Amino acid sequence: MGFMHHVAACNDHDASGFIPFAIENQPVGRVRPAFAGLLQSWPEIFSTTGQAVALHCRGGGLQERSALVAGVLEQLIAQGALGQFHGERYAAVAEGRGEPLLLIDRAMAPCFGIRAYGQHVNGFVRTGAGLKMWIGRRADDRRHAPGRLDNLAAGGLPYGLSLAENLAKECWEEAGIPAQLARQATSVGTVTYHMDTATGFKPDTLFCYDLELPEEFVPHCMDGEVQSFYLWPVEQVMELVRHSSEFKLNCNLVIIDFLIRHGYIGPEDEEYLALLGALHPSMPPLPRHFL
């Protein structure tokens, strides 16, 4: 199977199947033409053509604009055209993590192809037998990737929380890591991917953290997301990633990044150079006639 198999699976985007989504003449995402067709029923809010979709409701601020879009999505949910809301809101921005132009429910972000951000923690322990990693197994009742292996703690970055606040929240909820210990997590960079889903397009950026834990620490899930934890030698984790699909898909990328930074995947590995670039891909461009 190999490490690149997982990276490729997270980067299966076909830009030819999408058109731009813009707010205030600034591109913030991309949508499937079929979804654009659904939005044509609300011309007072969305301008839709075969070439692009634009949010053009006038007046009001961020909250009013976001409420109008949420109202449209609620009607589409009631019609059975979309699934249910998640309950967290993401911010749509024109570039990077600047000022938000729209707030949208996490479950609906892929409909508009809005870049989402998450935080993933690699928890590890230095033991007399070598480096070990804490791995969680997701509960069987999860909406996404039930029963799959996961990083020690991970979650999306909702609007209104800082990176530090959200990291502490996720560490506590998913693994019972107290705030004073969570603050010792070290920011080590990002991984990025561009994935097509049944809902739309997921251009995601994950902020990665390493957290060295004391040998006596044992994680305990506080919110029901994780059913069990395992402390495994890093070599065992590496082989699971390389040869199986046991992990939630994007968690493979976070672990591969960890393995590279800690020297477990090195220049002698035939996938090494490909992985270095593939974990940080550029956004695939839309066809020229859409730009």
Rank of each mutant, 00 (worst) to 15 (best):
F258D: 06
Y90V: 15
V234N: 00
P214I: 09
G29P: 11
T190F: 15
A22E: 12
I255C: 00
A179F: 06
V53R: 02
E239G: 03
W42L: 01
P233D: 13
R143D: 01
R97W: 15
S162T: 14
H280P: 00
G50A: 03
L131H: 05
G60H: 08
H120K: 04
Y193I: 10
F21M: 08
G123I: 05
C57V: 13
F201P: 07
Q84L: 13
M238V: 00
N252K: 02
E174T: 07
F207N: 05
F290G: 00
I104T: 12
L68T: 02
V237D: 00
W232C: 00
F18P: 02
A70T: 12
K248N: 01
P110A: 08
A36D: 05
C221R: 04
P285E: 06
V234I: 09
G176A: 07
E165Q: 14
G61W: 15
L55T: 03
Y90M: 15
P219Y: 12
L102A: 07
Q79F: 14
K132P: 00
F18E: 07
I177C: 10
A179I: 11
D105P: 05
M1S: 06
M222T: 05
I265K: 03
G147A: 02
D210S: 07
F229I: 07
I177H: 09
E268A: 09
Q51V: 03
L161M: 13
Y209Q: 03
P158Y: 14
P43Q: 02
G189V: 05
A129K: 05
I19A: 09
A274Q: 15
L275E: 02
S244G: 01
H5G: 04
A116I: 10
L273T: 13
G60V: 12
M283I: 09
N122D: 00
Q40L: 01
L213Q: 12
E99R: 11
R115H: 12
T205P: 04
A179K: 07
H86T: 11
P27V: 08
V31C: 07
A91C: 13
A67F: 10
N252R: 03
E239Y: 14
S187H: 07
L73K: 06
P233S: 06
R242T: 03
L231F: 05
C57W: 12
M195L: 13
A154I: 06
P158D: 08
P267W: 13
G147S: 03
G59Q: 01
Y117I: 10
Q79S: 12
V218R: 14
R126Y: 04
H194D: 01
D257F: 08
P158R: 04
I114E: 10
F290W: 10
H86D: 15
L68C: 04
L62Q: 00
F18G: 02
G17D: 10
Q26M: 14
Y193C: 07
C208R: 04
P158F: 12
E44A: 10
I135C: 06
Y159F: 14
L279I: 15
R32T: 13
H220F: 14
G29W: 07
I265S: 10
A91L: 11
L62I: 06
S244R: 04
H144D: 12
S16A: 14
E215T: 11
D269G: 07
A34W: 10
D257N: 11
Q79W: 12
L259Y: 03
R242Y: 09
S47Q: 09
I260P: 00
V237R: 01
Y272Q: 10
A15T: 04
T127M: 01
A91E: 02
L286D: 06
A139R: 02
